[in-house]
Amino acid sequence: MDVSDILAAHQAKQKAVLVEKDIPLEVDAGFLTVTDLNPIDTESYEADLEEYLMSTARDGVQTLIASLFSLPTISTDDGPLAQLPPPTTQLPRAKPLPKPKPPTKWEQFAKAKGIQKKRRDKKVWNEEKQEWVDRWGWKGANKDKEVQWLTEVPANADVDFDPAKAARDERKARVAKNEKQRSANLARAAAAGSSSDDRKKTIDRTLAVTRTSTASLGKFDRKLDGEKPLKGVKRKFEPTETSASKEKSQNLAIISKLDKEPMAKKSKKSSDSSGDVLNVRKAIRSASKGKGSAALAREGASKGGKGKKGKR
């Protein structure tokens, strides 16, 4: 019996499964990644590109799948699942490292004095209840004095002295003081961290935002004198080959808008050029208390009638 055929077939099968390269492939099963560091074989690359790429890819996938089968598995309803190890490839951070926070006033003091930071337990032992209670918060130990049923009252206390209220006020004052110190620390950090340039930049940015924060996104706002155009805004032009009818209607719209403006200007000018010290429109408005000339005339007529009556 000649088994050489069978052996050869078996060997060929084994060959297809094993991948042999000059530099072994790097497998990162955690990311399901294979990296082939071997230089390109120029001859086969130029002879048949597709064939070469296919064979390289096949080798890579073969190695990856072989490594997957060597991983520990768990069995599930959908069949065995390989458990991937944590990835070994180091990926760069997406965001820069956070900047260190500026030290608070206490931290500065502690550093100067060489005071080590001690972490206090969040819980304290309550002898009476024989259990651990929170240092603060809901049913916290810092509220003991407010809830105890018997309190020592100093001899010189007022008649309406409420020990529970006094304790509570004291605690609230401590909270307020801490909050004040915290905000002072924040303010100090902000002042130290920002130069005048930064501040100018922030103000400019705020201004830019406010200018586009109207109902029309700043399009129909009245421009102030000496207001500079926004920086960093790209000019957008209509395409040169717009349809003539569209352009015509746009231009006509601009003209109709212009027609309204000069009217207002003209009326202003005429009142100026006539050299009148008295602004009639304004005078009527103030005399009629904003009701207009018609109301003023009506009022005048009724007064006149009364006057006549009085004379009689």
Partner: peptide, 18 residues
């Protein structure tokens, strides 16, 4: 070569309307 912007059109038309 490009069409006038609205601002430019306004300037041109005001001058012509004069």
């Amino acid at each position: 070569m490009r069409p006038l912007t609205e601002e430019e059109s306004k300037t041109v038309f005001t001058k012509l309307a004069n």
